[in-house]
Design a protein around this nucleic acid. Structure first.
Lengths: 359, 359
DNA sequence: GAAATTAATGATAGCGATACCAAAAATGTC
DNA sequence: GACATTTTTGGTATCGCTATCATTAATTTC
C-alpha cells in the first residue's frame, strides 16, 4: 500500500533497507516468532493475532528474506556429480546443463572425478561421508556395478543418466537408444543401402545393447535378414573402431554403409576408409551416434544421432531435487525419456550403383 | 588424501553434514575469517596461508553456503564467459575448470556463445547491459579487437586467456607458447629429424605467431636454416590441417616430421599420412599442441604440448574474482603464466635412415 | 636497532529467519 | 473454584558467512 516512510536504522552500514520480520513484529506488537508462524501458516495462532500481523505485513510490504530463511531452516541440498572420462565434449555439455539447473534449484553441486579402477570405492565413499544428499551419474559411471552398489548400499538417492538399464533403486533419465538406432538404420535403408554394417559399443554399457537392438529391429521391419558378419565388436574407443572397421571392410562382400555406435568409432571408420582409398560418403556411408564434438571436427562431418545432453543433465538435477525435497511419503522413483534427433551432415549418401571395387 | 573422519557435531539436529568455513579453518589451522578471505580472493593473505587453506578446501570438498553468504552481505558476482568456436575439446576443458572455480568462489557464470561476425557487438553489449561484473575471454575471442574494444570501452574488468599479446587494460593468463613450441622442435631435432615441417595456426590468433617464433628459434639455435617451404598455413581446424599436411607431403623433399600448431591439425596430418600409405611414426613423426581430448582419442596417440587448460580457466575466474572483490582500491592488473608440459606418446620417433620412398 | 609503517590474521557482532523449549494464557474437568 | 490440559506466545540459540575493528607479525625508515 502506502510507502510508509521507514526510518533508516542507524548503526552498521549493512542494512539493506528491506523490512524484516522484526519490523513487522514491532508494528504488530508481537514477537518475531509469532510473525514467523503467521508467514508459515502454522496453526497455533489466534485469529486476532494473525490478522494484526497480516495487516502489519501488508503495511510494510514485507517479504521474507529467502537467504535467511534457507539458512535458518531447511539446509541447502548438496548433490554430487561423479564423472569418469566420457568424451570431453559430453562432459562439458553435461556440466553446463546441470550447473545451470543447480543454480535455479538453489542446490550446491559437488563435481568430482572418479576414474574407474581401484579408487572408485574411495572416491564414492568420501563423497557419501562428506554428507552429500544425492548423486548424479552420467555415463559411463551410470553402468558401473561397483559404484552403483556402494551408492545403493548406502541408500543414497541416485539418478543415472543415459544408461540402457537403470537399476530399480535409481531414478533415470535417458533417450530411446533403441529407437534412435532404429531410426538411423531406417534412414540408411531409405537411402538404398542393402548391406549395412554395425559396430557395437562396449558391452559393459547397457546402452550398447539397446543400440544393437535398434539395428536389428530396423532390419527386421524392412524384411532384411540379420547377417552376423556385418556386426563388429567395438569398445566405444577410436582404436577399437579402427579394428572393427577393418574387419567389416575386409569382408568378401563389404557393406556400403557402416553405422558405428558412437562418433569416436565412426571417426575411426572414416580414417580406415580413407586409408583404403574409399571416399566417404561416395564409396562408403559412415554414421555415428552422440553428436559429440568429434562429429563436427573431422571431415567429412558425421551424420549422427544428437542427444540433448544438457537437457538430460538439467532434468537429472531437477528430478533429484524433487526426490529429496519431496515430502516424506513415497519417494516416487521416476524414469524420464527425452527426445533424440537424427542429424544429417556429410558422411552419408545413397550407395553407388555397383559396389565399389576392392583395391 | 585421507578420508578425514569429520565428527558429527552434536547439539541441534540442524546440521547438514556439509563442511563449513569453520571446518576448513580448523583443518588448515587458521581462523574462519582467513578462509573467507581466500575464498573471496582478497589480497592480504600470505601465499603459504592461502595454499594451506586451498588444500583444506580441496580435501573437504568445501563450497560456501550461498544462503549464509548473501545473508551476511556479500552480493553474488556474475561473470560472463564468452566463447566463439575454439576446438570443442578446448572449450569443454575450459568450462570444466571455470565452472568448478565458479562454484568454489560462489560466483555465477553466464556462458554465452559469441560468433565472430556482425553479431559480436550485439552479444557483448547485451551482456554488459545485463549487469555482468566481469568477463572472461578464452581464445579465439581473446584476440578479437572488436570484442576487446567494446569491453575496454565500457571499463568491464576482463581476463583474457591464452592470448599471445594481452592488451594492457586486461588481466591475462597464458602459457609460454613460444617456449613450448621451441621445446617441441628441440625434441624433434634431438630425435634426429632434419627436415621438420610446421603447420601454422590461425593468423588472427596471436598465439599462432608465438608458436611459429618458437619453431624458428629452435631451428636457429641448432644452426639450421629456415625453409619457407616447410611452413604451411593452417587455421586450427581439422579441415585446414588436411590441406596443410597435403601441401607439406607433396613437396619434392618432404619433411620427416611435422609439428602442427594444434592437435586438430595434427590429427588431420595423421589422417593424410595414412591415406598416403605412410606409417606414423615410422615414416612420419607428427606432433601437436594443446593435448586436447583428440590427442588421445586417435591412433597413434599424439605427442603434444599439454596446456593446463582447466587450471588456466580456474585461474582466470579466480583472478577476476580477486579484481572484483579485492579490497584496496586500485585493481592491480595481473598477468600469470602457467607451465606447459611436453607429453610424449606414440606419434614421434627417430627418422628412418633414408627418407621414405614416395608412392 | 628502535620507532613508524604496513601487511596479515584473529575476535566479535551481526545479517534475517527458524527450531526448540519454556512461559503465559486460555480452556476444560471435576 | 482448584487443578490438569491444551493453546498461544515469547525467549534464546543458532544457521554459515562477512564487516569491522583490534591485534599481531613483517617491513621499512632513519
Amino acid at each position: 500500500m502506502t510507502g510508509s516512510t521507514r526510518k533508516p536504522r542507524e548503526g552498521t552500514s549493512r542494512q539493506t533497507g528491506a523490512p524484516t520480520i522484526s519490523d513487522v513484529a514491532r508494528l504488530a506488537g508481537v514477537s518475531p516468532m509469532t510473525v514467523s508462524r503467521v508467514i508459515n501458516a502454522e496453526r497455533n495462532v489466534r485469529n486476532s493475532t494473525r490478522d494484526a500481523v497480516k495487516a502489519a505485513i501488508d503495511q510494510l510490504n514485507f517479504a521474507p528474506n529467502r537467504a535467511a530463511r534457507s539458512l535458518a531452516g531447511a539446509s541447502q541440498l548438496r548433490l554430487g556429480l561423479l564423472y569418469s572420462n566420457p568424451s570431453a565434449a559430453y562432459l562439458s555439455e553435461f556440466l553446463v546443463g546441470s550447473l545451470d539447473q543447480a543454480g535455479r534449484s538453489d542446490v550446491q553441486l559437488v563435481v568430482e572425478k572418479c576414474e574407474l579402477g581401484d579408487h572408485e570405492r574411495e572416491v564414492v565413499e568420501r563423497m557419501i561421508s562428506s554428507g552429500i544428499d544425492g548423486v548424479i551419474l552420467p555415463p559411463p559411471l551410470c553402468d558401473s556395478r561397483a559404484v552403483l552398489d556402494i551408492l545403493i548400499g548406502a541408500s543414497v538417492p541416485t539418478v543415472v543418466v543415459a544408461t540402457g538399464c537403470p537399476p530399480p533403486q535409481c531414478a533415470a533419465i535417458s533417450i530411446d537408444d533403441r529407437g534412435a538406432a532404429q531410426a538411423m538404420v531406417r534412414h540408411l535403408i531409405g537411402l538404398g543401402h542393402v548391406r549395412i554394417g554395425f559396430i557395437a559399443g562396449n558391452p559393459n554399457l547397457t546402452a550398447s545393447g539397446r543400440r544393437l537392438e535398434g539395428y536389428r529391429a530396423a532390419l527386421a521391419e524392412a524384411g532384411r535378414a540379420f547377417d552376423e558378419q556385418l556386426v563388429a565388436d567395438g569398445l566405444f574407443t577410436y582404436r577399437s573402431g579402427l579394428d572393427a572397421a577393418d574387419e567389416l571392410l575386409e569382408l568378401e562382400n563389404p557393406p556400403s554403409a557402416i553405422f558405428a555406435s558412437n562418433d569416436d568409432m565412426a571417426a575411426a571408420t572414416v580414417a580406415v576408409a580413407h586409408r583404403r582409398g574409399l571416399d566417404v560418403p561416395g564409396d562408403l556411408t559412415v554414421c555415428g551416434f552422440d553428436d559429440s564434438a568429434l562429429a563436427t571436427t573431422i571431415w567429412p562431418e558425421l551424420t549422427t544421432i544428437h542427444q540433448p545432453i544438457a537437457d538430460m543433465s538439467r532434468a537429472a538435477v531437477e528430478m533429484l531435487v524433487g526426490m529429496l525435497r519431496g515430502k516424506r511419503g513415497e519417494a516416487v522413483i521416476r524414469h524420464m525419456t527425452l527426445d533424440y534427433t537424427l542429424i544429417r551432415r556429410q558422411s552419408d549418401a545413397a550407395p553407388r550403383q555397383r559396389p565399389p571395387v576392392r583395391i
